[in-house]
Design a protein around this nucleic acid. Structure first.
Lengths: 146, 146
DNA sequence: GTTGCTGTTGAGTATCATTATCAATAGGCG
DNA sequence: CGCCTATTGATAATGATACTCAACAGCAAC
């Protein structure tokens, strides 16, 4: 039986309070900074569950990190993501859905899924593009500083 | 100055001899099995270089691994990938390019890039879908066995 | 409210991919 | 041929994520 724990709810809320995509790591760090003693493993588990249940969307960042986001639109959709501040807009893309299935079947492929995401600079970040990030860095996805 | 080494050439060839996307790890393993004493770090470096120079395309597998492929089409294009055997077809997608830029600018985003890939089952794999993989597993991207 | 069963948690550890380190090696120009 | 320096590769380091297992905490029955 599935139990209700404050941890799972806390992860859901922390995710919902985020504008854009966040990594499990940074979500965990953020939650601890807010006083929650939640464990890292639990955050990973909760995020995986939410993604499975369709309450969250996930994508792979170019760095190979998995990023998560609580999505308001329940159905299938795609994302327009600011690569500077992480701001995310949900976009419907019926044209693209149709295109994906068409090219798949043209080449004999079946059971087509697709990954379609657009990265750019949002209006705010375009303006302040040359200087340091002007927006809350907490909202931005975690980046490795290698 | 950029030097020509047999290692770099060997990676290029190994990549070219592959139908679909391969991970750096499996490419390295395969090369060693063919008798090449090349080092893992060198394979990573060579793949990163090839990707930078546009001689190879890379994408993140759902497992978070980076996969590489030698692409014949020089310009910008996308991929239709069999999730069973790794077979990859290069597809042009002018419609999608236009769409991506349109939705980006509609939302005030600039400098739009996009990730567009279609995963499915190729004709051969669709036929043998219920049983074990019928195609050469060497051609399939490496998968973690967790 | 108490008890007991069992799903969940979390600290630590393991694993895997990838990158950094650095001494030894080998292009390629003179 | 010899030198300079880019490249290599064995190994260690790093970072994300998954696993382990004992302690804990929902929840239902009493």
């Amino acid at each position: 039986m599935k139990r209700n724990t404050w941890q799972r709810e806390a992860v859901r809320e922390a995710l919902a309070s985020n504008e854009g995509f966040v990594s499990a790591q940074s979500l965990h760090t953020g939650m601890r900074e807010h006083g929650s003693p939640i464990g890292l493993a639990t955050v990973y588990r909760a995020l995986a569950d939410l993604a499975t249940e369709g309450e969250a969307d996930s994508l792979q960042s170019p760095d190979g990190e998995a990023l998560y986001r609580a999505c308001s639109t329940s159905g299938h959709h795609h994302h327009l993501i600011c690569r500077r501040c992480g701001l995310t807009v949900e976009i419907a893309a019926d044209d693209v859905e149709a295109w994906a299935h068409r090219v798949a079947s043209e080449h004999g492929f079946t059971d087509a899924r697709h990954v379609v995401d657009v990265f750019g600079l949002c209006a705010a970040c375009t303006g302040s593009s040359v200087s340091a990030p002007a927006v809350a860095p907490a909202a931005a996805p975690h980046r490795k500083q290698q």
